[in-house]
C-alpha cells in the first residue's frame, strides 16, 4: 500500500470560500488549578481556517499546544476564550462527531476488548447496523493488517498494533475529517510509512486530515499546510512547499551524467557567475534505505540485502 511520496507534494484541491471545515477564532486555553489560579497558558489566541480536502499539520516541540488545540476542536476541553467551529458547529456540539474520526496520542482503547469487539463497539456508537459494522470492521482490520490478531485482547497488543487498531477505530465511520494526534508515534519505519500513505490516501478520497506531530519529516512528507506552534503561540502558518522553498539557490538533478559532462556543467555555471557550486551524489534518506533492505529481505528470505552498502540508488535519489 506504500504509494509514491511525490503525491505529498501535489497541490491540495482548490478550496472554496464555503469549504472551511475547521475555524478557530481567538481560541485560547489556560489551565487553572483547583483554586482557579492560572497554572499554564497552553494556547494563546489562535485564528485558523482549515479547508476541505487538505492535510493540515500542527507542528511544534513538546508542550507547544498542539494536542490542546486538537482537544479544543474535539470539545474534550473547553476554551478559556474564543471559539472553535467544526463543520460550522461549536466544538462542544456532539453531533459534529458523526463526521469526525479521532486517533488520540496513545490510542486510548479498552484493553479488555479484542480488535473485532473494539470496532463493533465504536461502530455501535455511530448507530451503524450490524451488517455495516461487520463489513467495516472486516475491511479495516484487513487494512491495518491485524487479521491474524483480531481475536486477541488489546492488552496483549504491542504498541504498533495498538496504534493500528486505533487508526481503524478512527475510520470506522468513514469520517470526512480525520484528526490524528502524533499518528506515527510508536510505529516502526514500515508502519510509519504505511501511516503516511494512509493519510495521503485519505486526502485523495477527499477527506480533510488534521495531524499534529513533532516529527518534522512526517509533517513534511504529507502535509499541504502547516502551523508551527511554540509555547502556545502560532509562529508560522502556510503551505509546506512555500515555507520550505529556499530562494536564491538553484538545484539541478540528472541521471546518466558522465564525469566529463559534470565538469562541463560546472564550467558553464562558473562562467555565468554562480557561487557555492556543489555537484555530487545526493543522499538517500535512512527511511528509504531501511524500507529497501526490508523489502529485499522479505523477497529473498535468509540472504543478505542485495544492494551493496554505500552504493547510491540512482532511481530513488534522482
Amino acid at each position: 500500500m506504500i504509494q509514491e511520496a511525490e503525491k505529498a507534494s501535489q497541490p491540495a484541491p482548490r478550496s472554496e470560500a464555503g469549504d472551511v471545515v475547521v475555524e478557530t477564532r481567538n481560541l485560547s486555553k489556560v489551565y487553572r488549578d483547583f483554586w482557579g489560579r492560572s497554572k499554564k497558558i497552553a494556547l494563546k489566541p489562535l485564528d485558523l481556517d482549515i479547508r476541505r480536502g487538505e492535510i493540515f499539520g500542527l507542528l511544534g516541540p513538546n508542550g507547544a499546544g498542539k494536542t490542546t488545540t486538537l482537544k479544543l476542536l474535539l470539545g474534550l476541553i473547553f476554551p478559556t476564550s474564543g471559539e472553535a467551529l467544526v463543520f460550522g458547529r461549536p466544538a462542544t456540539d456532539v453531533s459534529k462527531n458523526e463526521r469526525i474520526g479521532y486517533l488520540p496520542e496513545e490510542s486510548y482503547l479498552y484493553k479488555f476488548l479484542d480488535a473485532e469487539e473494539t470496532l463493533d463497539f465504536y461502530g455501535r456508537l455511530f448507530g451503524m447496523s450490524p451488517e455495516e459494522r461487520q463489513r467495516r470492521a472486516e475491511a479495516l482490520i484487513e487494512m491495518v493488517g491485524l487479521s491474524r490478531d483480531r481475536k486477541r485482547q488489546l492488552r496483549e497488543y504491542s504498541k504498533g498494533m495498538t496504534r493500528r487498531i486505533g487508526v481503524a477505530q478512527a475510520l470506522i465511520n468513514d469520517p470526512e475529517l480525520v484528526i490524528l494526534d502524533e499518528p506515527t508515534s510508536g510505529l516502526d519505519p514500515i508502519g510509519s510509512r504505511e501511516m503516511k500513505d494512509l493519510i495521503i490516501d485519505l486526502k485523495s478520497r477527499g477527506k480533510t486530515v488534521i495531524m499534529c506531530s513533532h516529527l518534522l519529516a512526517d509533517v513534511e512528507d504529507v502535509c499541504d499546510r502547516i502551523a508551527v506552534l511554540h509555547q502556545g503561540e502560532l509562529k508560522e502558518l502556510g503551505r509546506v512547499e512555500e515555507l520550505l522553498r529556499v530562494t536564491g539557490v538553484t538545484q539541478i538533478r540528472a541521471t546518466g551524467l558522465s564525469a566529463a559532462a559534470t565538469a562541463e556543467v560546472r564550467a558553464v555555471l562558473e562562467r555565468h557567475g554562480a557561487a557555492d557550486i556543489d555537484i555530487g551524489n545526493p543522499r538517500s534518506t535512512l527511511e528509504d534505505l531501511f524500507l529497501e533492505v526490508v523489502r529485499d529481505t522479505e523477497s529473498r528470505p535468509g540472504r543478505r540485502a542485495r544492494r551493496p552498502a554505500g552504493a547510491p540508488d540512482a532511481t530513488r535519489a534522482g
Binding site: 474534550l76 486510548y108 479498552y110 456508537l125
Partner: peptide, 14 residues
C-alpha cells in the same frame, strides 16, 4: 484516568 473516555466522547455520544 486511562483516557479511554476520549475515544468515546469524540464519537457522537451524549
Amino acid at each position: 484516568k486511562s483516557r479511554t473516555i476520549q475515544t468515546v466522547t469524540t464519537k457522537p455520544v451524549r
